[in-house]
Amino acid sequence: MNITLRVWRQRSSGDEGRMVTYQVEDVSPDMSFLEMLDVLNEKLTLAGEEPIAFDHDCREGICGACGVVIDGVAHGPETTTTCQLHMRSFDDGDTITVEPWRAKAFPVVKDLVVDRSSFDRIIQAGGYISAPTGSAPDAHATPVPKADADRAFDAATCIGCGACVAACPNASGMLFTAAKVTHLGSVPQGQPERDARVVQMLNQHDEEEFGGCTNIGECAAVCPKGIPLDTISQLNRDLLGSLATGSAE
């Protein structure tokens, strides 16, 4: 199939970017979206034009490195990561618009590559359980009800890709933050730091200039890992709880 691509090109964070149109011919429906970009990049290189920069690593949907907005939807038309999207989801002759994640907290580094280190800083603010190596009791010392373990797991599947931010009309990082709060708050080991965690992580979230959440739900609709929207409500519950006990601020 033949595809027309409109791709955001931007040399560096300081530069103005713009949309550039490319034709990609003989695209196989079995190609992944990123492989299609690889093919285009090979062609561009041989033609003397710099290849398009995009983040990726595992190409199996687990590292969270990849991610672009395709025709206005984060990660494109299927609910999966960009690397797991295949060209058979498009039709011959389609024009596809490809843009980077857009948010103040995710400045563009180059072309489709953005800087997501704000997520790391949210984790630094409290997205962990303090358990210095060697201090752990036997793993079976504290049983964890299966329901809690499953809930923790569902939230823990977040790959930190940032699609939630890209899709949120407020550019809020609430789903990512809530996923971590819910994961760690659902296991007994996470209880001692629970009240402080939610407050610290939210403060950092706000400091990174993510928008506020107004429960729109686009985030969960594009999340490739299906992080449930109710984690945000869980975060709000934890927050109200910590405000009530006065442990906040």
């Binding site: 962990y128 752990a136 036997d138 793993a139 049983p143 373990a149 296991v187």
Partner: peptide, 12 residues
């Protein structure tokens, strides 16, 4: 033991 203490959600 270490991983469980960190909150790693192993299957249960």
């Amino acid at each position: 033991d270490q991983c469980v203490a960190q909150g790693v959600p192993f299957a249960r």
